[in-house]
């Protein structure tokens, strides 16, 4: 069977997401924490919409009925050295 990759950073497939939903992790934040999608370097920018589409279908809702996960700063990865500033 072919695999559909949902989260490229963490290698999470459609099957993984479906399994997690079936196990009861059926709100977006729990689903993120259990499956690990959206926790790689892209912080969900590539995967969140796919997951929202799938979860809304499974729950019989419209995608816009689901919220995004809480966004965690920084928007893009930043070096410790840059954050620390001049020595």
């Amino acid at each position: 069977m072919s695999k559909k990759i949902y989260c490229r950073c963490e290698d999470i497939t459609e099957e993984d997401i479906l399994k997690a939903i079936d196990e009861g992790f059926d709100d977006i934040e729990s689903l993120k924490r259990y499956s690990g999608f959206s926790t790689g370097p892209c912080e969900g920018k590539n995967c969140i919409m796919h997951v929202i589409r799938l979860l809304s279908q499974k729950k019989g809702l419209k995608p816009e009925d689901l919220r995004l996960t809480v966004l965690r700063p920084p928007v893009d990865p930043v070096l410790i050295d840059v954050l620390a500033g001049e020595e």
Partner: peptide, 17 residues
Amino acid sequence: LRNIAPPLRRVKVLRSW
């Protein structure tokens, strides 16, 4: 962190909460 562990200055921060 940079003060105690200087080589870690080259590491990138992904997210904070």
